[in-house]
């Protein structure tokens, strides 16, 4: 369980994270979603005690990161794949981490085998490809067999096979009852990976919920063209539907299924020329949700 409580992080005059609160529960994969620069990495660094929040706090199973005596046994994290001394071998890198947390050296070989790096364990980490570095980072996160895991943009640099591997791996971790937080700027990735999603933009909380809930709420607009748009709009006003757009092309209706609109038109005696349900993809939902925050950031950049 990870609890983020009213975290604010300011760098000079920019606010990277703005009064952000959320909880990450065990047993499910939680996607941490936001456009680039929305404060995901900063939030993760704060959870790991690397950055100090200006306000608020983050707790892991009720404890602050700094109070953990063997943190690797409680939290595993992959922040940046390349956060390794380039001159040190993969095995020595993991061994130094293990020893500092009282983890037996045999565990180093176990995790190296698990991520498939045993054959390059003695090679310098600086010579690793991005995909290999990601695997090394994952090995480091798993060293202490922790109940809580954080991954910042883990699919970056992985080939399709690696991506499938990592999705199955997250599923396994969650099924074992662990708390799994995975950040991404790609909604499509989260749609197939995560169970729960937390969306942030410009450092602010936007929404959270299950993947299904998020699509259900924003989905279901129907494009309607008829012989009498005016009459149809009147008729729709008596239902749960909302008409968001009226032009020569027709109406954009949300809140009522296409079949119900068709029945209504037939009952009112209006002939329909078009009835097209438009199911918003998760990607569109995400774009819509974060639209304001992204636009604001671009105007702000232009203003500078």
């Amino acid at each position: 369980m990870i609890s983020v409580e009213h975290i604010t992080k300011r760098f000079n005059d920019t606010t990277a994270v703005d009064d952000l609160s959320f909880e990450v529960k065990p047993g499910v994969i939680t996607g941490f979603l936001g456009p680039n620069g929305s404060g995901k990495s900063t939030t993760m660094r704060i959870i790991l005690g690397l950055d100090r929040p200006t306000k608020g706090r983050a707790l892991i199973n009720g404890k602050s990161y700094h109070s953990l005596s063997a943190p690797l046994r409680e939290v595993g994290a992959l922040l940046e794949a390349k956060a390794v001394h380039p001159g040190r071998s993969a095995r020595n890198h993991l061994l130094a981490l293990a020893v500092s947390n009282g983890i037996p050296a045999s565990r180093v070989d176990e995790v190296l085998n698990f991520v498939g790096l045993e054959s390059v364990a003695k090679k310098r980490a600086g010579d690793f490809s991005l995909g290999m570095s990601q695997r090394l980072g994952i090995a480091g996160a798993l060293l202490g067999d922790p109940p809580v895991l954080l991954f910042d943009e883990p699919v970056n640099g992985l080939d399709p096979e690696g991506i499938r591997w990592i999705r199955e791996f997250f599923r396994k971790l969650a099924d074992e009852g662990r708390t799994v937080l995975v950040s991404s700027h790609l909604m499509s990735e989260m749609a197939v990976t995560a169970d729960q999603i937390i969306v942030i933009g410009r450092g602010k909380f936007i929404t959270s919920g299950s993947v299904d809930d998020l699509t259900k709420n924003a989905a279901g607009t129907v494009i309607v063209r008829s012989t009498n748009n005016g009459e149809l709009t009147k008729a729709l006003a008596n239902t749960s539907a909302t008409v968001s757009e009226i032009n020569d092309e027709g109406l954009r209706v949300s809140g009522l299924a296409a079949a119900a609109i068709g029945d209504l038109a037939f009952a009112t005696g209006i002939a329909l020329h078009e009835l097209t349900p438009e199911r918003a993809s998760l990607e569109e939902v995400f774009m819509e949700l974060t639209h304001d925050s992204v636009e604001y950031s671009q105007t702000a950049k232009e203003a500078n």
Binding site: L50, Y65, L79, E80, A83, V84, H85, N101
Partner: peptide
């Protein structure tokens, strides 16, 4: 400084936050 230039300091500090 090699820990800072390689950003491995973040890995180090997450293992030893003290």
């Amino acid at each position: 400084t090699s820990e800072y230039t390689s950003t491995s300091i973040r890995t180090t500090l997450s293992a030893v936050p003290n």
